[in-house]
């Protein structure tokens, strides 16, 4: 088997005495999409923050392309190809939609140190940013300030900013949360397309089980900061420990009782 692109070894962070992420070891390979699931407070977003560098680990290690990046900050990890979309929308509110994405293109090109030329003369950066906006159906809003977008459009812009970095590791933190029903497919199609390229390593925190089933090659389950299951979607969903941990109820209740209609249909 090839070397993992991203790997965590006994990754732990404690806030006071509480271990929010507790000794999680997992490896993620190129061309795969892994869904990370678990009840609220299981430590999914904290696990993401540890991998992308927003939080510093108390113990354990993070390896990116075989290199130990545990001591590096988020900027350094981003430059090594780690892209992150955020659960709570995280934009440049008073800058235009286009500028939000253009800044990411500029970061990718390493162009921030240039004090003397004009940003507006780098047509190539602007064109790339416009293409990314088209891919998430935001091209029409390019001159709108990010703060004025609808909630769903903000989520799309958040994803677009990550895409513009052209990362080889993509981390989506509940990309469809709070989106209206007709907006969800745009994001899902995008993730599908990225997965179909077959070269990227995609991590997805998601609550909607139908989304997880349709996208994931593998599911990692966190519960109380610990990794409690890791494997093929079908077997993970069916395992009793997951039923209890993820759904927080006795194992005899089936997943279908709480899953979305699409999942029920899939199970007939």
């Amino acid at each position: 088997m090839s070397h993992p692109v991203l790997e965590t070894r006994e990754l732990t962070i404690r806030f006071g005495g509480h271990a929010a992420v507790d000794g999680v070891s997992a490896a993620f390979h190129a061309g795969t999409l892994t869904a990370i699931v678990g009840p609220n407070g299981a430590g999914k977003t904290t696990y993401f923050n540890l991998m992308s560098g927003q939080l510093a680990a108390t113990a354990g290690r993070v390896l990116l392309d075989g290199v130990d990046v545990t001591g590096l900050g988020p900027a350094a990890r981003a430059r090594r190809g780690m892209g992150r979309a955020f659960q709570l929308t995280n934009l440049f509110p008073n800058l235009s939609v286009l500028e939000n994405v253009r800044l990411a293109v500029q970061a990718r090109a390493g162009g921030g140190g240039d004090l003397l030329s004009l940003w507006s003369r780098r047509r190539d950066w602007i064109e790339i940013a416009e293409r990314v906006l088209e891919s998430v159906n935001l091209a029409n809003a390019r001159h709108t300030p990010a703060a004025a977008l609808s909630h769903g459009d903000k989520r799309k812009l958040d994803v677009a900013i990550m895409m513009a970095l052209e990362p080889h590791v993509l981390m989506f933190d509940e990309p469809t949360a709070g989106m209206s029903v007709d907006e969800v497919p745009v994001i899902l199609d995008l993730i599908h397309a990225l997965k179909a390229e077959g070269t990227r390593t995609i991590l997805l925190v998601e609550h909607k089980m139908d989304v997880v089933r349709s996208l994931a090659d593998r599911i990692v389950v966190l519960h109380n900061g610990r990794l409690v299951a890791d494997g093929e979607p079908a077997e993970v969903i069916a395992s009793p420990i997951v039923q209890e941990a993820y759904l927080g109820m006795p194992a005899r209740t089936t997943v279908q009782d709480l899953a979305s209609p699409a999942l029920e249909r899939a199970h007939g």
């Binding site: 900027a75 934009l91 800044l103 140190g113 240039d114 004009l118």
Partner: peptide, 19 residues
Amino acid sequence: SPFGRVLQAIRENEFRAEA
């Protein structure tokens, strides 16, 4: 300049600029 644009990004959202 591209540099100046990064300054504005930092003013708007330093956390995201870092990311």
